[in-house]
Simulated assay, not measured.
Amino acid sequence: MIERRAMNRIPINRAARLSFGGISGAHPCIVRDISALGACISTPYYIFANEFALSFDGHSGIFFCRVVWRKGTLCGVCFVLRRRSPQSANDCSNTTNVVRLGHA
């Protein structure tokens, strides 16, 4: 299989929560793998939203995500930098914004 990602992803299989605009509450998911640019997320439900917030602890460390692909209850997302208008984290036009990931 040919690897198409800009960066290799780190398998973490860690529980997290998704928050959707206009829907109250946080919804469970598993982050299967992650990189500085995106992640693969598994849920017990189909994600209809194109954008949502991903959090590992519910309060800090929130990643804003945009769905890149879907396959059943699995989806791949890219991280979005929140400013005046959403910009993909892998947009190289502004290299001052860097997402740093710590190993759990």
Rank of each mutant, 00 (worst) to 15 (best):
A15Q: 10
L37A: 14
R66M: 04
C40Y: 03
F79Y: 09
E3G: 07
T95L: 15
E3Q: 15
S19R: 00
L81G: 12
F64S: 13
C40K: 11
G25M: 05
V99P: 01
G61P: 11
S24P: 08
Q87S: 09
M1P: 12
N50F: 06
S60M: 01
N94S: 15
F48N: 04
S85N: 10
V68N: 04
Y45D: 04
C75W: 00
C78K: 01
N8T: 11
P86H: 08
A53H: 08
A53M: 09
I62A: 05
R82H: 07
H27C: 00
N13F: 12
R83Q: 13
A89M: 12
S35A: 11
F52T: 05
R84S: 11
E3Y: 12
W69I: 02
Q87C: 10
N94C: 14
G61C: 11
G38F: 08
G72N: 08
C40R: 13
N50C: 09
N13V: 08
L74S: 09
R32P: 00
F20Q: 01
E3L: 09
I23A: 05
G38D: 00
I62V: 15
R5T: 09
F79W: 10
M7W: 09
G38L: 06
G102W: 11
R66E: 04
R84H: 13
Y45K: 09
C29Y: 00
T96I: 15
H103C: 06
A6D: 09
F63T: 05
A26C: 03
G38M: 04
S93A: 14
I2R: 15
I10G: 02
G25Q: 01
R70A: 03
S19A: 08
T95W: 10
I12G: 05
C29F: 00
V80N: 04
R32T: 04
L37F: 13
I30G: 02
V98C: 07
P11Y: 03
N50H: 11
G25T: 02
H27M: 02
P44G: 05
L74Q: 08
N50E: 11
F63S: 13
G76A: 10
F56G: 09
A89W: 09
A53G: 07
A26I: 02
T43S: 07
L74P: 00
R66A: 04
M1G: 15
V80I: 14
A53P: 01
S24R: 00
R9L: 12
C75F: 03
I34N: 08
A39D: 06
A16L: 03
G38Y: 02
G58R: 02
R100T: 13
P86I: 07
R84M: 12
G21Y: 05
S42A: 14
